[in-house]
Design a protein around this nucleic acid. Structure first.
Length: 791
DNA sequence: CCCTGTGTCGTCATT
DNA sequence: CGACACAGGG
């Protein structure tokens, strides 16, 4: 955990001597275009780069080059990314290239970098050092509270929508006053009322939301030119990865910072812009040359990742879009396998076919499980895939969904700690005041809240003087008093006790331990292990650097996502198409290619939205190095109801010369191009010649993998890591759920049978299964028998 | 005050 | 289907 959060000393290092050996090393592995981008060290630079062109690598080498030539010392460089993972990889690679010359260099996500900057300058905008960072859930809670207070009907206008509207206003740097003047319509008018109250509530709580982390620095720079100047002086070289994903605030920040030395280097691909929904503004990259007229533009058009067929398909996807920069991708990986399209009857059928293909390739071709990625449009689609993989004991991990720090038990502990650090943090206070339940119910809380607002104090202050609140019964006062005693005790201990001990004791005394021990369920055990892991993480973090405190830990973890883990187990990866950006895999499945799902029904109305969906398809397809599988299901459960689907319009757009259907035929018949009836294509992926793949698989793919170490955590390695089980055992925490009396199962030796009874749990579980013919009943240990449920 | 059962609702992607 | 809000009994 600690390794993820790199803090380095802010002291400027002295000038660096040129290192010609390193320079050579840095340039040697690059092609001509990449080299041009790396050596263009003066003035604004835009690197327009297609997928698989090594664009992040190029950026990395440029930073290393600056260091190796002595043009800059680490202190003068800042690099901004969108994920912590990207930042970590970049830092590691620079270190590999130039050795330990990186101390003082800022490499991080936009959010964590500016949170860090704010920590230093926060006084100037009237917050205190120990501010809390509110995630989207916290923000939503605040919005809801304010709506209640303002007596707005939360049925007519959803707090969620209001929160999103406020967020996008902030992304566009529209403040509360300005917003009010231009609001029209029900949602906007409600938002106009809530917005100022929301801001005030955050301020009172000494809290910043995600958007504030970027917005406040802009305001700070405007308000205090001296501070801006300081950072402009300091960062002579500003680098931004994935520039097409920047929103307006980020754009302004980049402009402010780079205005000093004008050495702004951005990397991006307009064709991979898939984050418009969270405010990313594609025009930032499209108009870079207009913003910086003396900019050097370098195009990286050579693709090192994918085969020709995959690239042809990808090109044919993106060709349908009108808005894009000119760019032609090419590769010298000729041909390759055709892209295989499979039609399934249902999402279960689709999942089964994916699973079969994975096992088939893994067994026959010796591919690792980690060579496979299965992509989908919405997180809900992962369920069917998970079930299919679990049934066959294929290890998998899911990226996204709820990450470690979003688990309830983790958020509970974090809330306790946030409260200690920042007593004004009302969201955290309310989260833990009655968890575990200690007799402070809704009514009591409301009375405390009222007392606080009537006396113009924070809720914690009201808790501190609970005896004065005469609306409360003695019983309630006692309950609140007990809570206060616990919190106060640990507040006073904070500076003296080591944080991990403090946390452990607090968990115990607050009653979380006994809460989790109350019932001996698997779930509770897992939760407890997660809490332990958190405590270890805190200890590790605070020991890692001098200025790594509990307060900074709490700020940093809010900004971590699932993509930032650091395990590298041999598992199949399941994730959304969005989460796949920047990653690569030898074999990629894109599932759920159905009209209404991908593209989503909502997106089909607007051309711009449809184009974003198409770019998403493009991103997904270009993740594949060797093989790409597309699939869709005729029927799919949505909202608990089965829906009948037609195949995605995208399938009618793509170049069908590189596509083969599972039945062996062409994707489209030449004559009736738009017929969606495909014949005989319900066969599985297995129908093709199994040896075809081995013959054509490149040997080189193993080594190319090293560059992009995939470092995401396994679903259950979280829970198994503390009980010391090996990394191989992944994923099966739900037990052998499907094996119950009555179901039909398949056994590798005995064939089909019917489960009669099941006994025991976990590894000891056994089932009596009746098989036909002269086999009869068999008692099987589920751990070894690998039964497959077939109905 | 707390737990449980029932009904309601909706769901895209995320730092 | 599943998360979540709300009502009613313990």
């Amino acid at each position: 955990m600690a390794r993820r959060i790199q803090l380095s000393s802010p002291s400027p290092s002295s000038s660096v001597d040129p290192d010609s050996e390193a320079q050579e090393r840095i340039l040697s592995g690059l092609n001509e275009d990449q080299r041009a981008a790396v050596t263009a060290t003066d003035g604004p630079v835009m690197i327009i780069a297609g997928p698989g062109s090594g664009k992040t690598r190029t950026l990395t080498h440029r930073i290393a080059y600056l260091l190796a030539t002595g043009k800059a010392n680490p202190y003068q460089i800042i690099a901004l990314t969108f994920t912590n993972k990207a930042a970590r990889e970049m830092r590691e690679r620079v270190q590999r290239l130039v050795g330990d010359r990186t101390r003082g260099m800022w490499v991080g996500t936009f959010h964590s970098s500016f949170a860090r900057l704010l920590r230093r300058e926060i006084d100037a905008i009237g917050y205190s050092q120990d501010f809390s960072i509110y995630d989207t859930d916290d923000s939503k809670k605040i919005v809801k509270q304010q709506m209640n207070r303002l007596q707005l009907n939360t049925d007519e206008v959803k707090p969620r929508s209001v929160q999103r509207t406020i967020s996008s206003a902030k992304n566009q740097m529209v403040g509360p006053q300005e917003y009010t003047s231009m609001a029209h319509g029900r949602l906007q008018e409600a938002t106009a009322k809530v917005y100022p109250a929301y801001e005030a509530a955050l301020k009172r709580a000494n809290a910043l939301d995600f958007d504030d982390l970027l917005l406040k620095p802009v305001q700070l720079f405007n308000q205090e030119p001296k501070i801006l100047e300081k950072y402009q002086q300091r960062w002579q070289y500003v680098h931004i990865d994935e520039y097409q994903d920047t929103n307006h605030v980020q754009y302004v920040l980049a402009k402010q910072l780079a205005a000093g030395h004008k050495n702004l280097c951005v990397v991006g691909d307009d064709a991979q812009s898939i984050y418009a929904f969270r405010g990313a503004d594609i025009s930032n990259i499209l108009s870079f040359e207009r913003d910086y007229p003396d900019a050097t533009t370098v195009r990286l058009e050579r693709n090192y990742r994918s085969t020709e067929n995959i690239l042809t398909l990808a090109d044919s996807i993106i060709d349908q879009n009108e808005d894009q920069l000119d760019k032609t991708l090419w590769t010298d990986k000729d041909g390759g396998e055709k892209v295989l399209l499979t039609e399934a009857l249902s999402e279960k059928d689709e999942a089964k076919k994916v699973e079969q293909k994975i096992r088939d390739l893994q067994l026959r071709e010796g591919l690792e499980y980690s060579d496979f990625a299965v992509l989908y449009r919405t997180n809900a689609q992962s369920r069917a895939l998970e079930e299919a993989l679990r049934r066959e004991n294929v290890p998998y991990r899911i990226i996204g969904g709820t990450s470690f720090y979003q688990r309830k038990e983790i958020k509970d502990v974090l809330a306790y700690l946030k409260l200690l650090v920042n007593p004004n943090d009302r969201a955290s206070l309310e989260r833990v005041i009655n968890y575990p339940t200690r007799g402070i119910g809704a009514k009591t809380q409301e009375r405390v809240r009222n007392y606080a607002s009537q006396n113009d104090m924070s809720m914690w202050q009201a808790v501190e003087q609970v005896e004065q609140i005469d609306t409360l019964s003695t019983r309630a006062k006692n309950a609140v008093g007990r809570f206060r005693a616990i919190i106060a005790k640990y507040m006073s201990k904070m500076d003296s006790a080591p944080v991990d001990d403090l946390t452990r004791d607090l968990i115990q005394e607050a009653g979380m331990l006994s809460e989790l021990r109350k019932e001996h369920t698997r779930e509770n055990l897992r939760r407890w292990e997660n809490v332990q892991e958190l405590v270890n993480g805190i200890a590790e973090y605070t020991a890692s650097a001098d200025n790594a405190t509990l307060s900074t830990f709490l700020q940093e973890v809010t900004l971590l996502t699932d993509l930032d883990g650091d395990d590298d187990p041999n598992t199949v990866t399941l994730m959304t198409l969005h989460a796949s950006k920047g990653l690569e895999y030898p074999v990629v499945f894109i599932t759920g290619l159905e009209e209404g799902l991908f593209p989503l029904a909502k997106a089909t109305q607007e051309r711009t939205e449809l184009e974003e969906e198409r770019r998403l398809f493009y991103v997904g397809a270009t993740r594949a190095e060797e093989r790409l599988f597309l699939s869709w299901a005729r029927n799919r459960y949505r909202y608990g109801k089965q829906e009948h689907n037609t195949r995605s319009r995208f399938l009618d757009e793509i170049d069908d010369s590189v596509v083969q259907t599972a039945g062996g035929g062409r994707l489209r018949q030449k004559k009736n191009r738009f017929s969606s009836s495909s014949k005989g294509s319900t066969e599985s992926y297995d129908d093709m010649d199994p040896h075809y793949y081995r013959k054509n698989l490149r040997k080189g793919s193993g080594s190319s993998k090293k560059g992009t170490r995939r470092t995401t955590r396994t679903v259950s390695s979280k829970s198994s890591s503390s009980n010391g089980s090996s990394g191989r055992r992944v994923v099966y925490d739900e037990g052998e759920g499907q094996i119950v009396p009555g179901v039909r199962v398949q056994h590798s030796k005995f064939g089909e049978g019917k489960v009669q009874s099941v006994e025991g749990e976990g590894d000891r579980a056994t089932a009596v299964v009746f098989f036909g013919g002269d086999i009869g009943n068999k008692k099987l240990k589920l751990k070894y028998a690998r039964l497959r449920v077939i109905g």
